[in-house]
Amino acid sequence: MQLSDGFEGKLMPAGATAGAAVPTPLRGTAKYLPLRKALNRAAPYVFIAPAAIITTLALAYPMLQSVWLSFRDWSLGTPLGQSRFVGLANYEWLLHDPNFWASAAVTLTFAFAVVVVEVLLGVMLAILLDRELRFVSLFRTIFILPMMVAPIVVGLVWRYMYNEQFGTFAHLLKALGFAPVPWLSSPKLALISVIIADVWQWTPFIFILSLAALQSLPASALEAARIDGATHWQMVWHIKVPLMMPVIAVAALLRLIDAFKVLEVIYILTEGGPGLSTEIMSLHIYKTAFVSQQLGQAAALSNMLLLIVLALTVIFAALTAVRQRREKLAAARR
């Protein structure tokens, strides 16, 4: 719907309502109009069809397969045809499984902690580096480097740094005369260690998006504020941050969704331990599928994770919509 309107809108003179007026360039060919119009309307769908079909297949097939699988009992390495239909048993198991609830709690803690810290740090860094300094482009490049490192490598690097016997931090603490810290072997600290590694890797993501947002802010607003005598901090608080908000919100949402799916770094760092203290949902799914080999249960778990992420996205989108409407109303009132 939207696409077709947009397409037609381009052909129409400003102010015309869709479908009401005949576009100027076509005047005089009124005889062919219905067909032409129909073709024009169809064109965007035709163009988009191949991509839409592929996406649907690539997205819908595995999703439907996963839903189907979640009603079955299938062990890895046996033919799929031998799997048994078990109805909702996998979901029932999941709701009664203490490990599921433990991993859900870990996932929520992890996701919210990393998103909050990353957004704060990323925005702060962006505001700090949004100016003409010497070597500023060098700093910017350095700051986004962690994001380019493969997750497995990030996991290994941090694992070695955290190593309590030979690691970088162990040496540093020892040199400064402090006791060694059980970074990965204490259930209380392990999750924090994992969060630090994630923050290190993904703050740059928020940073570059915020920086881009900052640099595309309307100069007029900033200029007006300056003329009105706003201080630097006032400009940051009252002009820059509110104007960046839509971008920050989207970036935070992307990070949140990603944080729910993170696997590699934690897999390498702690493999979910000690106990279940860092067993995030995606790792729990992996273990259910490949260690316990309960593919049906793993599928049920994946579907739950999908639902949670979907719910979050919907809530977030709704909040954004509400806020935007409120802003529009406020603007209209002014």
Partner: peptide
């Protein structure tokens, strides 16, 4: 055994050695 050792017994023992 893989499931028992990896996801059940091994998790309880993890809680034991870390004093949970």
């Amino acid at each position: 055994w893989n499931e028992l050792a990896g996801s059940v017994i091994g998790v309880a023992l993890g809680d034991i050695v870390t004093g949970q």
